[in-house]
Measured scan of single mutants.
Amino acid sequence: MTEYKLVVVGAGGVGKSALTIQLIQNHFVDEYDPTIEDSYRKQVVIDGETCLLDILDTAGQEEYSAMRDQYMRTGEGFLCVFAINNTKSFEDIHHYREQIKRVKDSEDVPMVLVGNKCDLPSRTVDTKQAQDLARSYGIPFIETSAKTRQGVDDAFYTLVREIRKHKEKMSKDGKKKKKKSKTKCVIM
Protein backbone atom coordinates (compact mmCIF):
# COMPACT_ATOMS: atom_id res chain seq x y z
CA MET A 1 0.00 0.00 0.00
CA THR A 2 1.38 3.38 -1.01
CA GLU A 3 1.77 5.99 1.72
CA TYR A 4 1.43 9.69 0.95
CA LYS A 5 2.85 12.38 3.24
CA LEU A 6 0.53 15.37 3.00
CA VAL A 7 1.12 18.66 4.78
CA VAL A 8 -1.63 21.23 5.43
CA VAL A 9 -0.27 24.79 5.54
CA GLY A 10 -1.81 28.24 5.84
CA ALA A 11 -2.32 31.16 8.19
CA GLY A 12 -3.80 30.75 11.67
CA GLY A 13 -7.57 30.36 11.82
CA VAL A 14 -8.20 29.39 8.17
CA GLY A 15 -9.55 25.94 9.10
CA LYS A 16 -6.61 23.61 8.49
CA SER A 17 -7.45 21.44 11.51
CA ALA A 18 -11.19 21.55 10.78
CA LEU A 19 -10.56 20.30 7.21
CA THR A 20 -8.25 17.53 8.41
CA ILE A 21 -10.58 16.37 11.20
CA GLN A 22 -13.54 16.46 8.81
CA LEU A 23 -11.63 14.14 6.44
CA ILE A 24 -10.39 11.79 9.18
CA GLN A 25 -13.31 11.70 11.63
CA ASN A 26 -16.26 13.01 9.60
CA HIS A 27 -17.16 15.76 12.01
CA PHE A 28 -16.81 19.53 12.23
CA VAL A 29 -14.87 21.16 15.04
CA ASP A 30 -16.14 24.70 15.44
CA GLU A 31 -14.12 25.88 18.45
CA TYR A 32 -10.75 27.40 17.58
CA ASP A 33 -7.82 25.80 19.35
CA PRO A 34 -4.53 26.86 17.73
CA THR A 35 -2.51 23.85 16.58
CA ILE A 36 1.18 23.40 17.23
CA GLU A 37 1.43 20.24 15.15
CA ASP A 38 -0.86 17.22 14.81
CA SER A 39 -0.46 14.10 12.72
CA TYR A 40 -3.29 11.94 11.37
CA ARG A 41 -3.41 8.74 9.33
CA LYS A 42 -6.25 7.39 7.24
CA GLN A 43 -6.56 4.55 4.75
CA VAL A 44 -8.58 5.50 1.67
CA VAL A 45 -9.18 4.27 -1.86
CA ILE A 46 -8.36 6.83 -4.56
CA ASP A 47 -8.93 5.86 -8.20
CA GLY A 48 -9.05 2.18 -7.25
CA GLU A 49 -5.76 2.27 -5.32
CA THR A 50 -5.79 1.70 -1.56
CA CYS A 51 -3.43 4.16 0.05
CA LEU A 52 -2.48 5.49 3.44
CA LEU A 53 -2.65 9.23 3.95
CA ASP A 54 -0.20 10.53 6.53
CA ILE A 55 -1.43 14.07 7.15
CA LEU A 56 0.48 16.70 9.08
CA ASP A 57 -1.71 19.53 10.34
CA THR A 58 0.59 22.46 11.01
CA ALA A 59 0.68 25.64 13.08
CA GLY A 60 -0.43 28.77 11.26
CA GLN A 61 0.71 31.10 14.02
CA GLU A 62 3.86 33.03 13.22
CA GLU A 63 5.54 32.06 16.52
CA TYR A 64 5.83 28.48 15.22
CA SER A 65 7.30 29.42 11.85
CA ALA A 66 10.72 27.99 12.80
CA MET A 67 9.18 24.50 12.71
CA ARG A 68 8.05 24.90 9.08
CA ASP A 69 11.30 23.98 7.34
CA GLN A 70 11.36 20.62 9.11
CA TYR A 71 7.87 19.48 8.09
CA MET A 72 8.26 20.94 4.61
CA ARG A 73 11.33 18.74 4.09
CA THR A 74 9.36 15.55 4.83
CA GLY A 75 6.12 16.41 3.00
CA GLU A 76 5.45 15.04 -0.49
CA GLY A 77 2.52 17.35 -1.21
CA PHE A 78 0.99 20.46 0.30
CA LEU A 79 -2.55 21.77 0.76
CA CYS A 80 -2.13 25.56 0.81
CA VAL A 81 -5.21 26.76 2.68
CA PHE A 82 -6.68 30.24 2.96
CA ALA A 83 -10.09 31.39 4.22
CA ILE A 84 -12.35 33.00 1.61
CA ASN A 85 -13.34 35.60 4.23
CA ASN A 86 -9.74 36.57 5.07
CA THR A 87 -7.79 38.44 2.38
CA LYS A 88 -4.56 38.42 4.43
CA SER A 89 -4.62 34.60 4.57
CA PHE A 90 -4.94 34.57 0.76
CA GLU A 91 -1.99 36.96 0.39
CA ASP A 92 0.06 34.76 2.77
CA ILE A 93 -0.21 31.80 0.36
CA HIS A 94 2.60 33.27 -1.75
CA HIS A 95 4.97 33.16 1.24
CA TYR A 96 4.08 29.55 2.08
CA ARG A 97 4.59 28.50 -1.53
CA GLU A 98 7.96 30.26 -1.78
CA GLN A 99 9.12 28.68 1.48
CA ILE A 100 8.06 25.20 0.29
CA LYS A 101 9.92 25.66 -3.01
CA ARG A 102 13.03 26.90 -1.17
CA VAL A 103 13.05 24.05 1.37
CA LYS A 104 12.34 21.40 -1.29
CA ASP A 105 14.86 23.10 -3.62
CA SER A 106 12.42 22.66 -6.50
CA GLU A 107 10.04 24.71 -8.62
CA ASP A 108 7.89 21.62 -9.12
CA VAL A 109 6.30 20.55 -5.82
CA PRO A 110 2.81 18.96 -5.70
CA MET A 111 0.38 21.52 -4.23
CA VAL A 112 -3.32 22.30 -4.19
CA LEU A 113 -4.70 25.76 -3.42
CA VAL A 114 -7.68 25.47 -1.06
CA GLY A 115 -10.20 28.24 -0.36
CA ASN A 116 -11.90 27.17 2.86
CA LYS A 117 -15.07 28.44 4.58
CA CYS A 118 -17.02 28.71 1.30
CA ASP A 119 -20.23 28.23 3.34
CA LEU A 120 -19.81 31.75 4.78
CA PRO A 121 -21.61 34.68 3.11
CA SER A 122 -18.88 37.20 4.02
CA ARG A 123 -16.49 36.46 1.14
CA THR A 124 -13.55 38.86 0.64
CA VAL A 125 -11.54 36.68 -1.77
CA ASP A 126 -13.25 36.25 -5.12
CA THR A 127 -13.28 32.75 -6.65
CA LYS A 128 -11.77 34.16 -9.85
CA GLN A 129 -8.86 35.70 -7.90
CA ALA A 130 -8.06 32.30 -6.40
CA GLN A 131 -8.46 30.51 -9.75
CA ASP A 132 -6.11 33.02 -11.37
CA LEU A 133 -3.51 32.54 -8.64
CA ALA A 134 -3.71 28.74 -8.91
CA ARG A 135 -3.42 28.96 -12.70
CA SER A 136 -0.33 31.18 -12.41
CA TYR A 137 1.21 28.57 -10.06
CA GLY A 138 0.13 25.69 -12.32
CA ILE A 139 -1.76 23.97 -9.49
CA PRO A 140 -5.41 22.96 -8.91
CA PHE A 141 -7.79 25.16 -6.89
CA ILE A 142 -10.64 23.76 -4.80
CA GLU A 143 -13.15 25.57 -2.62
CA THR A 144 -14.07 23.76 0.57
CA SER A 145 -16.21 24.02 3.65
CA ALA A 146 -15.03 22.02 6.64
CA LYS A 147 -18.46 22.75 8.15
CA THR A 148 -20.60 21.27 5.35
CA ARG A 149 -17.84 18.89 4.11
CA GLN A 150 -18.07 20.39 0.60
CA GLY A 151 -14.88 19.71 -1.35
CA VAL A 152 -13.01 18.16 1.60
CA ASP A 153 -12.37 14.73 0.06
CA ASP A 154 -11.76 16.37 -3.31
CA ALA A 155 -9.00 18.62 -1.90
CA PHE A 156 -7.03 15.80 -0.28
CA TYR A 157 -7.62 13.32 -3.12
CA THR A 158 -6.60 15.89 -5.74
CA LEU A 159 -3.35 16.39 -3.84
CA VAL A 160 -2.69 12.63 -3.92
CA ARG A 161 -3.28 12.68 -7.68
CA GLU A 162 -0.83 15.58 -8.02
CA ILE A 163 1.79 13.60 -6.07
CA ARG A 164 1.21 10.57 -8.32
CA LYS A 165 1.65 12.72 -11.45
CA HIS A 166 4.82 14.20 -9.99
CA LYS A 167 6.28 10.77 -9.14
CA GLU A 168 5.42 9.49 -12.61
CA LYS A 169 7.09 12.49 -14.22
CA MET A 170 10.18 12.10 -12.03
CA SER A 171 10.53 8.41 -12.86
CA LYS A 172 10.20 9.16 -16.60
CA ASP A 173 12.85 11.86 -16.28
CA GLY A 174 15.04 9.41 -14.37
CA LYS A 175 14.68 6.77 -17.11
CA LYS A 176 15.61 9.32 -19.78
CA LYS A 177 18.75 10.24 -17.85
CA LYS A 178 19.67 6.58 -17.37
CA LYS A 179 19.25 5.89 -21.10
CA LYS A 180 21.51 8.81 -21.94
CA SER A 181 24.19 7.67 -19.52
CA LYS A 182 24.40 4.23 -21.18
CA THR A 183 25.98 5.73 -24.30
CA LYS A 184 29.62 4.72 -24.36
CA CYS A 185 32.59 6.34 -25.93
CA VAL A 186 35.21 4.09 -27.53
CA ILE A 187 38.68 5.48 -28.12
CA MET A 188 40.86 3.55 -30.60
Rank of each mutant, 00 (worst) to 15 (best):
residue 84 I to S: 15
residue 164 R to N: 11
residue 53 L to M: 08
residue 169 K to G: 09
residue 27 H to V: 08
residue 4 Y to T: 11
residue 91 E to H: 12
residue 95 H to K: 15
residue 25 Q to R: 10
residue 12 G to Y: 04
residue 136 S to K: 14
residue 5 K to D: 04
residue 128 K to T: 14
residue 143 E to F: 02
residue 82 F to S: 12
residue 179 K to N: 15
residue 10 G to V: 00
residue 44 V to H: 12
residue 99 Q to I: 06
residue 65 S to E: 14
residue 4 Y to M: 03
residue 142 I to F: 10
residue 22 Q to L: 02
residue 99 Q to P: 01
residue 65 S to A: 08
residue 164 R to W: 08
residue 28 F to C: 11
residue 117 K to L: 15
residue 38 D to R: 07
residue 100 I to M: 04
residue 128 K to M: 11
residue 155 A to N: 01
residue 187 I to W: 09
residue 15 G to F: 00
residue 14 V to L: 06
residue 19 L to V: 09
residue 63 E to L: 02
residue 162 E to S: 04
residue 54 D to S: 11
residue 35 T to M: 05
residue 58 T to Y: 09
residue 142 I to G: 04
residue 130 A to W: 10
residue 92 D to L: 07
residue 142 I to P: 00
residue 101 K to D: 02
residue 182 K to P: 14
residue 45 V to W: 05
residue 88 K to Y: 08
residue 22 Q to T: 03
residue 119 D to N: 03
residue 101 K to A: 05
residue 87 T to N: 12
residue 50 T to D: 08
residue 90 F to M: 07
residue 26 N to C: 03
residue 187 I to N: 15
residue 109 V to F: 10
residue 58 T to D: 12
residue 105 D to E: 13
residue 88 K to G: 12
residue 99 Q to L: 14
residue 114 V to I: 14
residue 12 G to N: 02
residue 135 R to K: 07
residue 124 T to W: 07
residue 158 T to N: 10
residue 78 F to A: 01
residue 49 E to I: 03
residue 111 M to K: 03
residue 76 E to G: 05
residue 86 N to G: 11
residue 27 H to T: 08
residue 103 V to G: 05
residue 25 Q to H: 11
residue 165 K to Y: 02
residue 137 Y to S: 04
residue 24 I to W: 07
residue 184 K to I: 01
residue 5 K to N: 09
residue 87 T to P: 15
residue 130 A to E: 04
residue 48 G to M: 02
residue 105 D to R: 10
residue 168 E to A: 10
residue 13 G to F: 08
residue 120 L to K: 04
residue 123 R to T: 13
residue 70 Q to S: 07
residue 149 R to K: 14
residue 25 Q to N: 05
residue 53 L to R: 01
residue 17 S to F: 00
residue 169 K to H: 08
residue 27 H to E: 12
residue 43 Q to T: 08
residue 65 S to G: 13
residue 82 F to C: 13
residue 162 E to Y: 02
residue 162 E to M: 12
residue 168 E to L: 09
residue 87 T to Y: 07
residue 105 D to L: 03
residue 39 S to I: 06
residue 15 G to R: 00
residue 150 Q to L: 11
residue 48 G to I: 02
residue 155 A to D: 00
residue 86 N to T: 04
residue 176 K to D: 07
residue 162 E to G: 03
residue 181 S to L: 03
residue 177 K to Y: 11
residue 174 G to Q: 13
residue 112 V to E: 00
residue 125 V to A: 12
residue 82 F to R: 01
residue 136 S to G: 09
residue 184 K to P: 15
residue 155 A to E: 01
residue 110 P to G: 00
residue 105 D to Q: 15
residue 159 L to Y: 00
residue 174 G to H: 01
residue 45 V to Y: 08
residue 79 L to I: 12
residue 140 P to V: 09
residue 125 V to I: 11
residue 46 I to P: 03
residue 60 G to K: 10
residue 183 T to W: 02
residue 56 L to I: 08
residue 154 D to W: 05
residue 170 M to I: 13
residue 8 V to G: 00
residue 90 F to E: 10
residue 172 K to R: 12
residue 91 E to S: 02
residue 176 K to Y: 04
residue 124 T to E: 14
residue 177 K to H: 14
residue 94 H to M: 15
residue 29 V to A: 11
residue 120 L to G: 11
residue 70 Q to T: 04
residue 169 K to V: 13
residue 6 L to R: 01
residue 184 K to F: 00
residue 145 S to I: 03
residue 173 D to K: 02
residue 13 G to C: 08
residue 152 V to Y: 08
residue 160 V to D: 02
residue 83 A to L: 01
residue 178 K to P: 09
residue 103 V to I: 09
residue 21 I to Y: 14
residue 120 L to A: 12
residue 138 G to L: 05
residue 22 Q to G: 11
residue 165 K to S: 07
residue 33 D to S: 10
residue 61 Q to R: 07
residue 138 G to K: 10
residue 98 E to Y: 01
residue 138 G to R: 01
residue 43 Q to P: 09
residue 129 Q to H: 13
residue 25 Q to A: 05
residue 103 V to L: 13
residue 93 I to P: 03
residue 104 K to C: 07
residue 89 S to W: 03
residue 62 E to F: 05
residue 96 Y to C: 09
residue 185 C to S: 15
residue 30 D to S: 08
residue 130 A to N: 04
residue 52 L to D: 13
residue 127 T to G: 11
residue 103 V to K: 04
residue 169 K to F: 03
residue 65 S to V: 08
residue 12 G to Q: 05
residue 75 G to H: 10
residue 167 K to Y: 04
residue 183 T to M: 04
residue 182 K to Y: 03
residue 43 Q to G: 07
residue 62 E to G: 12
residue 52 L to R: 12
residue 56 L to K: 14
